[in-house]
Write a protein that binds this DNA or RNA. Structure first.
Length: 596
RNA sequence: GGUUCCGUAGCUCAACUGGAUAGAGCAACUGCCUUCUAAGCAGUAGGUUGAAGGUUCGAGUCCUUCCGGAAUCACCA
């Protein structure tokens, strides 16, 4: 983007020198030239025609000629209607590349800023599914993007480990479990517990059905079934701290955590701190009291506590029930405050939570703001769209979900199958192959979920496998591996490429210009991705870069036998491209491989 | 019903926030491996951007109305 700013400044000067027309940088628009026109950047003339007082063609030629004479960036131009397309000077780009190659890492040193990022945040009554994966990859990637810009990032999740849903699993296990465990059944712990949750729902439905047949209304039947009564009784016992129940609760949650941790490990994601709802669900009450004293909240006659946000275009919101117990909002207020106590230097918190809770977070941030927390205005709800299946929403209660572990396992199988088909596995031994399949599978899955704008809902069809060709993770891995193979060959041939002085190169190809133009945008892209909390921007960028490199690779021979400075330059350009691809993939949580 | 979001090639997604002839990938069809990895490259075909108006030099993007879809509006979590 720097480059566009520079061109704008040059254009301003031309306007002034040639036409005595003064305008500010905001009046000028320089766009990237669309692919079917030649050039890199385009000045749009229409808005200036009145001020320039001559016709389009004349104006375009005068501006273009003047820039060719005076610009340090622009080497040539062509005029199509009101669009003045610029070509870029080789030596300018080479200079930029040279600067970039020595600086691109060191630019992002620690900046002492800190943030908190929440993501994943599962319930302990069911295994992770595809929706969680979108959440996790998003949160993890945004964390990495901020980290790469020098922030200290605290990755946290809140585990919803208490409540009626966990009690349901407990009831079912007590009734039907016969003391089985994940170990005895050789089942992953989260799956094991999740199955009892489903069992509960199934038996409960049967019971309700029987009750309704006996003439009980459906609403009553749901409440009156023996299973539901027992679940509620367990919840009360849990809240009283009943030792038996707590023991069972700990045992079953322990199984679930083993399962979650195994999934997290398999997708290479970790957290700096876990919060458990069982420890935070009472937080916030104190803050509500303070809010009442400050007259931000008010008490109804039945002693329930509310906030009236109708002036801010929200509704009234309940904060404490009439019996004094807290609601979701209460806990979130308390937890937010606790997090900033735990990480006091943080300037903001990013919540990775689905867009079904858009309203909730708007209200939460508003309340925190009213309570006087300065960071409240900086907090951000990283809201993402749901993943729909071809026949509608995923519904965990009905078992209509795409299970995370299963999906990963299918992806690995596909990676293996494809690799064997393509005859890619000859140079590997067994253990390396397992790692390779893992990397390819995860690259495909992560990239598939991250390349879509987070805000948008996406469709997932389990019958169509995720692609490995085209705009995909494996394509990016492949491009990287290809380049590393070039570098390896350069080293074998003993061709120097790291220390060459770029300035001896006088002319470079369009392919090379495209690559450099993309490379030097690196920092701008990172900042844009961070500002918009959008890994999809990184995806688009790394795809463009890889695509441009592959065209270059295909059309221009690197090892042409001459082994002169041009060869060295091409290798150096390849080397730095691969390094940038690697760090971009790293931001997406994707591990590279040197060969595939 | 109120509020918010969405609708782009057969399918999955882009479009630098108002710029050109709306781009990629998949699927289909053509070429390119005796030379750096063909998970690649080059090309063909595919569109009234849900519909109709409006704003202006210029609209997928902004405004209005309609059609279709989703979310949310609980003393549920």
């Amino acid at each position: 983007m720097q480059l566009q700013e520079k061109i704008k400044n040059e254009v301003i000067k031309v306007f002034k020198d040639e036409f005595n027309y003064k305008c500010s940088i905001n009046d000028i628009s320089i766009d990237q030239t669309p692919k079917n026109f030649s050039g890199f950047y385009t000045l749009i003339l229409f808005p200036h025609l009145k001020s320039l007082k001559i016709n389009l063609e004349e104006a375009g030629n005068i501006i273009g000629d003047s820039l060719i004479r005076n610009s340090e960036i622009i080497s040539d131009y062509n005029l199509v209607k009101g669009f003045l397309n610029f070509d870029l000077k080789s030596d300018y780009l080479i200079g930029e590349l040279s600067k970039f190659s020595s600086e691109y890492k060191s630019d992002f040193k620690k900046n002492k800023r800190e943030i908190i990022v929440e993501f994943s945040s599962p319930n302990t009554n069911k295994p992770l599914h595809l929706g969680h994966l979108r959440n996790i990859f998003l949160g993890d990637s945004v964390s990495k993007i901020y980290k790469s810009l020098g922030y200290k990032v605290h990755k946290v999740q809140i585990i919803n480990d208490r409540g009626i849903h966990i009690c349901k699993s407990m009831v079912a296990w007590k009734r039907y479990g016969n003391d089985k465990s994940p170990d005895t059944e050789k089942v992953k712990g989260d799956k094991f517990v999740g199955d009892y949750y489903v069992k509960f729902e199934f038996e409960h439905k049967k019971e309700v059905f029987d009750l309704v047949k006996k003439g009980v209304s459906e609403v009553d039947a749901v409440k009156k079934s023996s299973l539901m009564k027992e679940a509620k009784s367990l919840l009360r016992k849990w809240e009283r701290g009943d030792k038996e129940i707590i023991k069972l609760w700990k045992k079953m949650n322990g199984w679930v955590y083993d399962g979650f941790n195994s999934t997290y490990r398999s997708i290479n994601v970790s957290f700096d701190k876990n919060y458990y709802e069982s420890e935070t669900y009472l937080l916030g009450k104190k803050n509500i009291e303070e809010g009442i004293l400050k007259k931000i909240f008010y008490k109804e006659e039945d002693s329930s506590v509310w906030i009236d946000l109708s002036k801010e275009n929200f509704d009234k919101k309940l904060l404490l029930r009439s019996d004094g117990t807290s609601v979701y909002m209460t806990q979130d207020i308390g937890t937010a405050i606790k997090r900033f106590e735990d990480f006091p230097k943080s300037e903001k918190q990013i919540y990775t939570v689905g867009n079904e809770q858009d309203y909730h977070f708007k209200v939460l941030f508003k309340i925190l703001d009213k309570l006087g927390y300065s960071w409240a205005k900086e907090c951000y709800h990283l809201s993402y769209g749901m993943i729909d299946l071809p026949d509608g929403k995923m519904k965990s209660r009905e078992g209509k979900v795409v299970d995370a572990d299963e999906l990963i396992s299918v992806m690995k199988d596909t990676a293996q199958k494809r690799s064997i088909e393509l005859g890619k596995i000859d140079d590997f031994d067994g253990e390396d192959l397992t790692k390779l399949y893992q990397k390819i599978a995860l690259s495909a899955l992560k990239y598939h979920l991250l390349k879509v704008d987070p805000k948008k809902k996406m469709l997932f069809n389990p019958d169509e496998s995720i692609d490995f060709q085209g705009n995909t993770g494996p394509f990016l891995l492949y491009t990287y591996a290809r380049i590393r193979s070039i570098i390896k060959r350069a080293e074998i041939l003993n061709i120097e490429y790291g220390k060459i002085n770029f300035s001896i190169i006088k002319h470079i190809s369009v392919n090379e210009k495209k690559i450099i133009d993309l490379l030097v945008n690196y920092k701008y892209i990172l900042e844009t991705a961070a500002e918009s909390y959008s890994p999809s921007i990184i995806c688009n960028y790394v795809y463009d870069l890889s695509k441009s490199y592959n065209s270059f690779y295909q059309e221009e021979k690197i090892f042409d036998g001459k082994n002169n400075e041009t060869t060295s330059f091409k290798i150096a350009l390849s080397d730095i491209t691969s390094k940038v691809i690697k760090s971009l993939l790293n931001l997406l949580g994707i591990d590279i491989t040197n060969k595939m």
